[in-house]
C-alpha cells in the first residue's frame, strides 16, 4: 500500500487517490503548426523511466485536488510532493 502525503489533507493510503500519469508534459502548439510527428511524440512517446518519475495524483475521496509526486518506479519511494504549477526540486537519481 502506498502512503501519499496530500499537500492539503496529509498522509493517506493509495485507495483515496487516482494516478493521472506524468507531470510536466507540454502540449505543443499552436495546433495548426504542429506536425503529425510532434502530435505523436506528445501523445504517445513519453519517458517510461525505471527510476524516478514525476507524476500527477488526485486526492479523489479527499479534497479532490491535483498535486505532483516524484516517485521511484522500482522501490515506490516518494522523493518529493509539490503543488500543481510549482517547479520540482532537483533530485539526483
Amino acid at each position: 500500500m502506498l502512503l501519499l502525503d496530500c499537500p492539503f489533507c496529509g498522509v493517506r493510503p493509495e485507495i483515496e487517490f487516482a494516478c493521472g500519469g506524468r507531470s510536466h508534459v507540454q502540449r505543443p502548439g499552436p495546433p495548426e503548426q504542429v506536425s503529425d510527428e510532434q502530435w505523436s511524440a506528445y501523445l504517445f512517446f513519453q519517458p517510461n523511466p525505471k527510476g524516478l518519475l514525476r507524476e500527477r495524483w488526485r486526492h479523489v475521496v479527499g479534497c479532490g485536488l491535483w498535486f505532483n509526486v516524484e516517485r521511484d518506479t522500482v522501490t515506490h519511494a516518494v522523493t518529493q510532493v509539490y503543488e500543481m504549477g510549482a517547479a520540482p526540486a532537483e533530485t539526483t537519481p
Binding site: M1, L2, N48, T73
Partner: peptide, 13 residues
C-alpha cells in the same frame, strides 16, 4: 495496479 511500476510485486488494494 494503476500507476507506473517496475517493481515485480503488486500492492494490496
Amino acid at each position: 495496479d494503476l500507476y507506473a511500476s517496475y517493481a515485480q510485486r503488486g500492492n494490496f488494494p
